[in-house]
């Protein structure tokens, strides 16, 4: 299945590292560590596809690769959920509505949404993996008639770390979506749902046709191996498993070397990979 790519950044004579200006138009806290950001570019839409990322920067602090969580349909606006883990993400968290940031991108290979038309989609998202997955989930829901069953599984460490809680509640209610959710532990919070790692949700699905279904898996590095084992138990073939991987990145364009995994540059050859194409790479999963 071929990778899909959005409009790449416009050619610049001066420097491919020169960011454009994006204005923060909306921001809210989702968890103590994760905040939702909505940005708007001055003169154009970002032109991304579901699953792509952008390099976002604060001048004087630095630049970081961040997944885009909105579908392409939002015109000149795009959304991100940023976890505060270091200096750049810390500076982004300090931005106020009306402030600006630098943006380069979109970068990377997208989820092959067009090629998945007419199939069942099984989204398996762990923790902050819901952020890139959401761009594809919302795209699929906007084009609901193009896909057969849409199954969404979401898991995170504890109830306080749930992201997009409004969307989760909606998906729970919708009759044209199969939705299951789990937390690894309740940590004392009120919780009536499933407790256990995300793979404990797979048996709840009953019979899923592995030939007509594609699994889209995004989560922390430790999750992939176990989810793939679970999917194999459900008779999924490797080419029906689509992953989005995380790596350290600097340039976003396959040059700086940080994200390299065997001979692949995750920033450019990925971050979305068909498992069949990378299962032989020892540095992948």
């Amino acid at each position: 299945m071929d990778k899909e790519r959005g409009n790449t950044q416009k050619k610049r004579n001066s420097s491919l590292y020169l960011p454009e200006v994006a204005t923060l138009i909306n921001k809210r806290e989702m968890t103590p560590d994760d905040s939702f950001f909505e940005f708007q570019l001055k003169n154009r839409s970002l032109g991304h596809l579901p699953g792509q990322f952008a390099e976002i920067s604060v001048p004087g602090i630095g630049e970081a690769p961040i997944s885009i969580s909105s579908p392409p349909s939002k015109s000149r606006k795009f959304e991100m959920v940023i976890r505060r883990v270091g200096s750049v993400t810390g500076a982004l968290h300090a931005l106020k509505v009306g402030d600006s940031a630098g943006i380069r991108g979109p970068f990377g290979a997208a989820f092959p949404m067009a090629a998945l038309k007419g199939r069942n989609l099984l989204f398996i998202s762990g923790g902050i993996g819901l952020v890139p997955a959401r761009s594809a989930i919302l795209y699929a829901l906007e084009h609901r008639q193009d896909y057969k069953d849409i199954i969404i599984l979401f898991g995170c460490r504890e109830p306080a770390q749930r992201l997009f809680t409004d969307a989760l509640a909606q998906w729970q209610k919708r009759e044209d979506i199969i939705f299951h959710e789990s937390v690894d532990r309740t940590n004392g919070a009120p919780w009536h749902g499933n407790v256990g790692v995300i793979t404990t949700l797979l048996p709840k699905l009953g019979k899923v046709n592995p030939v007509d279904t594609y699994a889209i898996v995004v989560g922390p590095p430790v999750m992939y191996k176990y989810v793939i084992m679970g999917l194999h138990d459900m008779d999924f073939s490797d080419d029906h498993i689509i992953l989005s991987l995380e790596r350290r990145m600097k340039c976003g364009v396959g040059k700086c070397g940080h994200c390299q995994m065997n001979d692949k540059y995750v920033c450019r050859d990925g971050p979305v990979f068909n498992y069949d194409r990378i299962k032989h790479l020892q540095e992948a999963i």
């Binding site: 976890r83 883990v85 995380e246 790596r247 350290r248 070397g257 940080h258 390299q260 540095e283």
Partner: peptide
């Protein structure tokens, strides 16, 4: 005033593939 600089880096250094969340892939 400030500048964004590019410096040589090395895949032999321990934190070359270390992500913000603390995963080190090499």
């Amino acid at each position: 005033a400030g500048k964004r600089v590019r410096t040589w880096d090395s895949c032999m250094l321990e934190d070359f593939a270390l992500t913000g969340e603390g995963f080190n892939f090499r």
